[in-house]
Design a protein around this nucleic acid. Structure first.
Lengths: 198, 198
DNA sequence: ATAATTGTTGACTCATAGGTACAGAATTAT
DNA sequence: ATAATTCTGTACCTATGAGTCAACAATTAT
């Protein structure tokens, strides 16, 4: 019973997300968003209320997409150790592909806004919690199969691996070559898994 | 042969550094800096040229201070394993103390500016390189003494530990409790060191 | 066809970002 | 005392940030 949207809000959020992801919150201007989304200022503020509001929507979208991707990844068949290595390897390949290093939007947001934006910090914190939980699963699987060492608590190993990922994503932002990242991954997998020789 | 400064530029840089550290580059306004430094606009731009220029000075100052602190720390006597654990523990205590979570200025800068500011990225990248090198030393010591496992290359272990630190500093930004961080530290130390029972 | 409702456009606003320019103050050399 | 030099405070400037508002367009209910 009214005029319909001329744009798809979901698509708009996806486009805006890319901008925030690359430029950060403070670094993104309304004009950036208008250009990316391709609508006028009136429409923009009519639908999204404020810069901060659309930012939250973008962050939630990012979290959702990442959670899905991770679950998807962990569903794969095969030994836990292989899945771990593959996950980490895929991650740094993603982070290092292309000329522009966006890193992880959640990590970037933590660095920029954790101090000042309680709502953003909460969203990121919950995402971190969920992600770590997914790793607990992986580790428990790996321990059950004897691939991961059992002398260290599964939660502790998961925290280690998850925290390592956060570090990888920061390191990837300034890395010129993948070497450091690959060294870290290699050491992590070897340090966390039992050594099987053949 | 001219009017002397009415302020100490070194002190000014230290104050400005605190502001950038907490609010980020884009999030810091000229007014923030003037308030923190306590000088007028004319003086400010006369001495520091531009916001970006003083930011670089702050980042270099931060790097210097951190490098000194780390070297200082690694000079301490005692087993490498203890120094490692103490270093990590001290780090998260620093990051979690007080109500405001500033994190690490280099990490925050990487997250905010690595994409867009080549000069800042270089400074941060060099700082990362130096820090990792310091860890190589520690690991080699530890391996020589039989405290650290020798089946993983010292450089790889150092990369792992250094990357973990980056992750700890991100995780600390949104952590409500130190538990996750302590779990990660505990797992890391145990995964990297040989187990000595008694 | 018209009313009611909601989307769209673009002009407009106010404050601030990020600096510049310049007049005046403090110092040293002479 | 004065000149030369450099610092300091303040007014000023332009562009943009972030958003509001009013007129107009498109749709559905009746």
């Amino acid at each position: 019973m009214a005029r319909p949207y001329e744009f798809n809000p979901d698509v708009a959020i996806g486009r805006a997300m890319e901008v925030f992801w690359q430029k950060g919150y403070a670094g993104t201007t309304p004009q950036d968003l208008l250009d990316a989304v391709g609508i006028g200022k009136g429409s923009f503020y009519n639908h999204f209320k404020s810069k901060h509001n659309i930012f939250e929507l973008c962050l939630l979208r990012y979290r959702q997409a990442q959670a899905d991707a991770l679950v998807q990844f962990l569903k794969q068949p095969g030994p836990a150790k292989d899945r771990l290595r593959k996950a980490l390897q895929t991650l740094i390949e993603f982070d290092l592909e292309g000329p522009v290093r966006k890193g992880c939007m959640a990590v970037n947001t933590a660095a920029e806004l954790a101090t000042s934006d309680v709502r953003a910090a909460r969203i990121v914190g919950e995402m971190f919690d969920r992600t770590e939980s997914a790793f607990v699963q992986l580790v428990e699987n790996g321990q059950a199969d004897g691939e991961f060492r059992r002398d260290i608590d599964a939660h502790a190993l998961a925290s280690l691996l998850f925290t390592l990922i956060l570090g990888l994503r920061i390191a990837g932002l300034v890395a010129n070559t993948p070497e450091r990242l690959e060294r870290a991954i290699d050491a992590a997998v070897r340090a966390v898994c039992t050594s099987v020789n053949g």
